[in-house]
Structure formats: C-alpha cells, structure tokens
Amino acid sequence: MNHDFHQRPLSAAEARVLGTLMEKARTVPDSYPLSLNSLQSGCNQKSSREPVMNLGEADITEALEGLRELSLVVEISGSRVPRFEHNFQRAAGVPEQSAVLLGLLMLRGPQTAAELRLNADRWYKFLDIGSVEAFLEELQERAEVKGGPLAVKLPRAPGAREQRWMHLLCGPVDTAAFASGAAAAPASSAADSALAERVETLEATVAELQAQLADLREQLGVSQPGQA
C-alpha cells in the first residue's frame, strides 16, 4: 500500500477530480480513462454534485498534479490526447464497496446510508442498507496503522430522521457545526422523488454526452463552437 496517500488532506478540487474519475470509470467505461475536456465537464456538471463547482482547466491540471503525487491518479500515455484514471482503491487500500461510498460522498456531500444506497445504483448494487452501513462503519473504525478513519457519522441534524455520513479525505470535520445546523428540508413525496430522480438521470446523460462530444472534437482537432 502507498502511504503517500495519507500524508495530507485533499483540496476540494482534488476531491472533485478524484470523485469524478471514480464515477466515470463505472458509469461510462467506454469513455474512460478521461481526457482533460471530459474530466472538466464531469467535474462541473450540475447533476449529482454538491456543491456545484466551476473548475477551470488550470484548476483541474493543478488538482491532477497533486493527485499524481499522492499516487491517486495515473496519466495514460500512448494516446494523442493525455488521459487520466484513478488509482484510489490500491492507494487507499480499501475494497470496491468502500471506494464507491467514498466516491459518492466526495461528489454529493454528506448523505444517509439510504441515500448512499440509492445514489450508488449505477456504480454498485448494494444488497441492502445494512451492508452500506457495515462498510461505512468499517471506514469510520479504520485502524491508525492503515491510515486512520476515512468516514465519520455526523450527529443527527435538527428535524432529520437519519444521521448522515461524511468522508474525511479533505481532513477532519467539525461535527458540532452539523449538529447545530439548519433543520433538514422536509421529505419529498414519492412522486416528487421519482421525478427528481428522472431529471437527474437525464441531466447526467446529457453531461456525459457533452463530455464525449468535447472529447471527440479534441481528438479530431475541431474547435468548440464560438471559438476561433
């Protein structure tokens, strides 16, 4: 196992880049490893992201360099366009299920075990919420000799029924701030939830198609519309 990974917390941009590579490796394997254009589109997409970010090419290049130093990202040579893939599981020394949960937490922010199971559907199909909780607890109780905990269970927020989980890849979390935070929004109706899920799926599909189109333009040497 590579212990460089545990030397420092990730920046917000590094976490977004890493999480996006982990997502696209599972959801659009035909487009993976990702070019810089595709990676930028994935990092900045408005669906399945919390918070929504607007990272420039320089931000992503800097994040990639930092992740490569930690052995979390590898640049693939042999293609005219540089491509990048993550090395998270090997560097962190965690099983696939734990990597999936950490990737989702990096991309979507704090979530309950039930939300994680639902959001993981395109990445990995967990048998039940209990199995999600078991892997989360394993991440929370991870021994110091292995690098210490990678996730934490947050105190129950006012008005919330379930406790949420958060990753620790960007450093320690002020759990007290979450405990005294604003009350959670009331649960949506089943119809609202189903509609939101359909819209999110469509937005993610459009974002992936846009990334593939940008990738194709890059390979063909065709400029983006509106560019000289």
Results as ranks from 00 to 15, higher is better:
P51Y: 00
E23L: 12
G42M: 00
P9T: 08
G42R: 02
K46N: 10
E23G: 04
L18S: 12
C43W: 08
S47F: 05
P33L: 06
N54I: 03
L36M: 13
K46F: 14
L55W: 01
L21D: 03
V17I: 11
K24A: 11
S31F: 12
P29H: 07
A15G: 11
S47E: 05
Q45V: 03
R49D: 02
A13Y: 06
S47W: 12
G42H: 01
A12L: 14
A25G: 09
A12K: 07
S11I: 08
N44C: 02
V17C: 02
Q7V: 14
Q7I: 15
R26N: 06
N37K: 08
A12Y: 05
L18C: 07
S48D: 09
N54S: 15
L21F: 06
L36R: 05
L18A: 06
E50Q: 13
Q40M: 13
L21I: 04
S41G: 04
R16K: 09
P29Y: 07
S31G: 05
T27G: 09
S35P: 01
S38T: 07
R49Q: 12
Q7A: 15
G42V: 00
A13K: 07
S11H: 11
M53S: 02
T20M: 09
L55I: 04
P9M: 11
L34R: 00
A25F: 12
L21H: 01
Y32C: 03
Q45D: 02
V52M: 12
L21N: 02
S48R: 15
G19P: 03
P29T: 10
A13G: 08
N44D: 08
E23F: 15
N54W: 04
L36K: 06
L36I: 14
N54G: 10
S31C: 12
L34F: 11
P51R: 03
A25H: 07
L21M: 05
R16C: 13
V17M: 00
S41N: 08
L21S: 00
R16S: 10
S11A: 11
G19N: 07
A12M: 12
V52W: 07
